[in-house]
Design a protein around this nucleic acid. Structure first.
Lengths: 147, 147
DNA sequence: GGTCAAGTTGACGTTGACGTCAAGTGAAGA
DNA sequence: TCTTCACTTGACGTCAACGTCAACTTGACC
C-alpha cells in the first residue's frame, strides 16, 4: 500500500542527493486520498504542470507542494480558479518584472484579508458551538437529575 | 429602495416590545447581499422554515439568525447538507429526548474538530502568505536598488 | 511472447448550488 | 379601475468539480 516503487527495481539512482525524488500519479493520489482523475483535472485547470516521460506524467516535489496547497485551499472553500491565480503567480516570480511583483503583492493582500475574515468566522462558529454545547449539558443534567 | 415597508402604512404596531420585527424575503436578500431565489432554495433544502401570511413568506429573527449561520457556514466551505444537520438539530432540542441530545453533542464534537483543522489550515496559509510576501519585498528591493 | 497492473486520452454523466425565465397573485397608490 | 411592484410557484438552464466508462499504450515480470 505504501511501497516506495521507484522508477525501476534498482531503486533511486537519480543524481546524487535524495532531493530529486519523483512520484507517479497513483502515489500522489493515494498519499492525498484523492483519485488520479482529480489530479489530471487539476492539471487541465492549470494548477499542476508535471513533466512527461513519453506519455506518463512524472511529479517532483514542486508539484507535490502545489497539490498540497491546492487541497488546503479547497478545504478553506476557495475555488480552483482562485487557487490557480495565487499558485501560478507564485512561481512566475523568477526575474519577474516589477509590474508582476506588484500585482502579486496586491493579490496577497486580498487573500490575507480573506483569511482574516474566515478566521473571524471560525471564531464565531466556535463560540456558537460552545454555547450550544453548554445548553446541551444543562438540558442533559436536568433530565438526568429527575432520575 | 430601502423603504421599511412594514405590513401596513400604519407602521410597526406588533405587540409591545420591538422584538417581534418581521422581514420580507427581499429585505433579507438585500441585507445579506444574496437573491430571493437563494433564500427560497435554502428553504426548499430545509434550512429555513418561515411562516406564511397567505402565500407570502414572513421571516422573524429566528430565520434571520439561521440565514446568517448558513451563510457563515458556506463561507467556511460547508455544504448545505452539513449546515442543515446542525441547524435543524439545533432547535429540535426543546424537550428533546436524551438520545437526540447525545447525538447533537456528537455532531458538535465533530464540527469542533473540523473547525480546529480549518484553523490550522488558515494559520499555515497565512504563514505561507507571509513567506511569499517577504520574498516579494526582497526581490522588489534588489530590483529597485539597481535603479 | 503473453499478460497484467497502472497510466493515458477523450467523451459523456452527475451532483450541488444556484440563475433565469414564464405566468400568475395581492395589495398600495394614482 | 388600472397600474405597478414585490412576491409566488414551477420548470428548465448553467457552471464547477469531479466520476465513470471505453479504448488504448507501456513497462515489468513469468
Amino acid at each position: 500500500m505504501a511501497t516506495p516503487h521507484r522508477t525501476s527495481k534498482s531503486s533511486s539512482s537519480s543524481t546524487t542527493s535524495g532531493a530529486a525524488r519523483t512520484y507517479t500519479i497513483g502515489e500522489l493520489a493515494r498519499h492525498f486520498g484523492i483519485t488520479s482523475r482529480t489530479i489530471r483535472f487539476y492539471e487541465q485547470e492549470g494548477l499542476l504542470e508535471p513533466e512527461r516521460r513519453g506519455q506518463t506524467r512524472i511529479y517532483r516535489d514542486r508539484e507535490r507542494v502545489r497539490l498540497k496547497l491546492t487541497l488546503r485551499g479547497k478545504r478553506l472553500g476557495f475555488s480552483l480558479a482562485e487557487i490557480r491565480e495565487v499558485v501560478t503567480l507564485y512561481d512566475a516570480m523568477p526575474d519577474g518584472d516589477i509590474q508582476q511583483l506588484r500585482r502579486l503583492m496586491e493579490l496577497l493582500a486580498e487573500k490575507r484579508t480573506e483569511m482574516q475574515r474566515r478566521l473571524e468566522d471560525i471564531k464565531l462558529m466556535q463560540r456558537e458551538l460552545d454555547d450550544v454545547e453548554n445548553q446541551c449539558r444543562e438540558a442533559l443534567d436536568t433530565l438526568l437529575e429527575r432520575h
